[in-house]
Design a protein around this nucleic acid. Structure first.
Ligand SMILES: [Mn+2]
Ligand SMILES: [Mn+2]
Ligand SMILES: [Mn+2]
Ligand SMILES: [Mn+2]
Lengths: 242, 242
DNA sequence: ATAAATTTTTAGACAAATCTAAATTATAAT
DNA sequence: ATTATAATTTAGATTTGTCTAAAAATTTAT
């Protein structure tokens, strides 16, 4: 339940002459980001429950927020009909993704974080409001195109870098071999495990055998390490065929 | 008006084994920081109105929050009696000051911000929760002792660097000359003005004349620039006698 | 096509942080 | 020592984002 709605026009940076059209809360930003990442790369229709699960909150709360974001014209939403970002909502979501991935890159490249330590901090840093900051950070990092997990970083205009056609390890056939290009889940448990078994961006993985019972696969990592990967893990690993 | 109170025990970083004793909100952190800076360096008693003015909110709101912080044992507060930080409250406040000043240093030293552009961004960054982040940032910046405005940065144990005895430009006599060591106000309007008249950390300022009517002073900056400084400005400038 | 299960929305409540208006306490002025 | 003024606190309301329980709509299964 919520009632009115009004737009707040505020200075972004005191130093900036520009005004932000809509000052969004930390929470609203997170909703937009989640909707974007659930629908990426095809702007799929997302359900209330999808969002509730991802944010680990009650679907009732999501319904309320969707109404609000719809009024702000950041999403297209009609009761029971699912939700889709508007162009404006998508633009904001991409900005947040950009900030998240730039901060992760900063933490790894400059502060020597390991790839499993960065996500939670970036979840906070992505909400810092300063266009100057993100512009300068981008240059400081030499305009990176991919984050520490191989995920693409949109440029200042919201354009994602063009990438080779990635295929999921999970969808490879026996004897096929890929070079790892990205991990599509930043959870520290997964990333720590991958480090343990020597999987990182750039290594090769060859499929030896597929077990149809649990959809696990036997693989050779970097030509020298035999490991069995569960479906949950293999579907998070993407790369190019070698 | 507020009701209950309970402590939330939460992981600080997912990577950390340590627990934070009290998870404070952004707002609570700001109250502690303000109380600290208003009472620094002598732990003076601070009034409700002081805080309300600084935060630009209603004194009634401050009263509520003081009750809450008192219950959390972060301040010593009794109705109508003013407020003082407890040791625990002071420790947290110093941590926030540390983070603020380290971020300002980062922005100037690494991202080429000017000294008048950093404060507002640091107000946001100081609330990022990650002990690993601040430890790494500190080392990345080579353990700086002073921020871009010459303000001391507490070390990892909350100890401020020992400094030469600073005197306020405002309290100098005619013909005295100081070297600027710190500016005790980070507002961009002041800092931009100081840049315009070539005042920065390290420059010399010699007092030529004091105007008893409005307490303005005529000074020579770096031996070559005559300027008249208002009381509001001269009382923000500190340095050592030359 | 109807019933059962699932998803989504509404209704009503609550906690945090703020506000305004009114009451209370403290301080300053006569 | 009263009175006037200023500072502070209480009372009650509001906004945001959440919750639980119940109602409504949609989807799935029979
Ligand atoms: Mn991440
Ligand atoms: Mn990532
Ligand atoms: Mn500052
Ligand atoms: Mn500063």
């Amino acid at each position: 339940m919520f009632t009115p709605l009004f737009y707040v026009y505020l200075l972004n940076d005191t130093q900036d002459i520009f005004y932000r059209f809509k000052m969004l809360s930390y929470t609203e930003e997170n909703y937009l980001k989640i909707i974007f990442s659930l629908s990426y790369p095809n702007s799929l229709e997302i359900t209330t429950n999808d969002i509730a699960k991802k944010l680990e909150i009650n679907p009732a709360s999501v319904s309320d927020m969707l109404k609000k974001l719809n009024q702000k014209k950041l999403i297209d939403y009609a009761k029971y009909q699912g939700v889709r970002l508007t162009n404006e909502g998508k633009k904001i979501a991409i900005e947040i993704v950009r900030k998240h991935r730039l901060w992760e890159t900063f933490l790894v490249d400059k502060l020597n974080f390991s790839w499993d330590e960065v996500h939670d901090v970036a979840e906070q840093l992505e909400h810092i409001q300063s266009s100057l900051l993100i512009e300068r950070l981008y240059k400081f990092l030499d305009c990176p195109k991919f984050d520490p997990h191989g995920e693409p970083i949109p440029d200042e205009h919201g354009e994602f870098p063009v990438t080779e056609n990635l295929i999921c390890l999970n969808s490879c056939k026996n004897q096929q071999k890929i070079q790892v290009k990205s991990i599509t889940d930043d959870s520290s448990a997964l990333l720590q495990y991958l480090s343990k078994i020597s999987v990182s961006i750039g290594v090769s993985i060859e499929i030896c055998d597929k077990n149809s019972y649990d959809n696990s696969i036997d693989v050779i990592i970097n030509e020298n390490k035999n490991v069995t990967l569960s479906k949950e893990i293999s579907e998070k690993i993407y790369g190019v065929l070698l």
